[in-house]
Write a protein that binds this DNA or RNA. Structure first.
Lengths: 153, 153
DNA sequence: TGCGATTAAATCGTGTGCGATTAAATTTCT
DNA sequence: AGAAATTTAATCGCACACGATTTAATCGCA
């Protein structure tokens, strides 16, 4: 790490922190989604897992983890709950018994339609143009990429 | 929720979701901070509480909750851990026994210096100019504000 | 004054997240 | 082929996060 910070040692203001802005925005998103997803019987991470499966069915726990940046210690119980709710099926892969393949059950596939309303509701509430949202998403992904890449140092 | 979304019903791609970009960025931030804050014996939310107290000492649980968007059910055990670590003191307010005032202990005040390095390390890793970070923070706060305001509907 | 309403924390139960470890299957390398 | 290394999930423990409820103190109003 360089010393680019050592010139300016004034105590940081909470609202200036990028990390805090992210923290708040993430929480706001969570609180927004919770009641809407609650009607579907889903939590927010469960919803993300389903979005990933709607896009590409029959993924292994590891594949889902890579997509969502989660590990098996988080995914396993979450997936068991989705399985318990009858939304997905967990089966060990035939060719490699170490892997567990997660695939959609009919009931899980049906939620796809209903969830559109949730995403649309958020889009409306934010009131940003698709372009601005796209730009913001790119900026965020840039930060995410830089932070993830910088972790190993 | 209105039906203004019903025109465009193409299945959303996971990476297009603003909520998912936030989710990832927040997690990346968490994973980045965790080992650094771990050296100080802090978790990320504990760090945020201390930042809030460094800025303004002797706040009530409710005040901290408003700043951090957290409720007493989250803050109380967190604050008890900070108290157990000798970083803060919790005392019922003299004029209103319902409130609990949280104030910094010397050891908690000292961490302020050390934490500068953590924030600086993140700043470096991200590699964005202060202006760009400021813009991003504003955009995020705009989204947060819109989402929070839209929740009551 | 006193009693109901309000407010502020704390408590409880469920569901993530994650570091560390474990268990089982597969691959690698002699 | 067979032991060691690697890979993949699962398990365990701890710390948030939050809806719902509880408890205690204060306020408001007749």
């Amino acid at each position: 790490m360089t010393d680019s910070h050592s010139e300016k040692h004034q105590p940081p203001h909470l609202d200036d922190f990028l990390c805090f802005a992210l923290y708040k925005a993430h929480h706001a998103m969570n609180r927004f989604y919770k009641p809407l997803l609650g009607e579907l019987g889903l939590t927010y991470p469960q919803y993300l897992v389903l979005v990933a499966l709607w896009e590409q069915d029959d993924q292994s726990v590891g594949q889902l983890g890579e997509l969502l940046h989660l590990e098996s210690n988080t995914l396993t119980p979450l997936l068991k709950r989705l399985e318990g709710a009858g939304l997905v099926r967990r089966r060990r892969a035939a060719n490699d018994e170490r892997q567990v393949q997660v695939s959609l059950m009919p009931e899980g596939r049906e939620l796809k339609q209903k969830s559109w309303d949730v995403a649309a509701c958020l889009f409306e509430t934010i009131g940003m143009s698709r372009e601005d949202i796209g730009t913001l998403v790119e900026d965020l992904n840039g930060v995410t990429g830089a932070v993830v890449a910088g972790r190993g140092r």
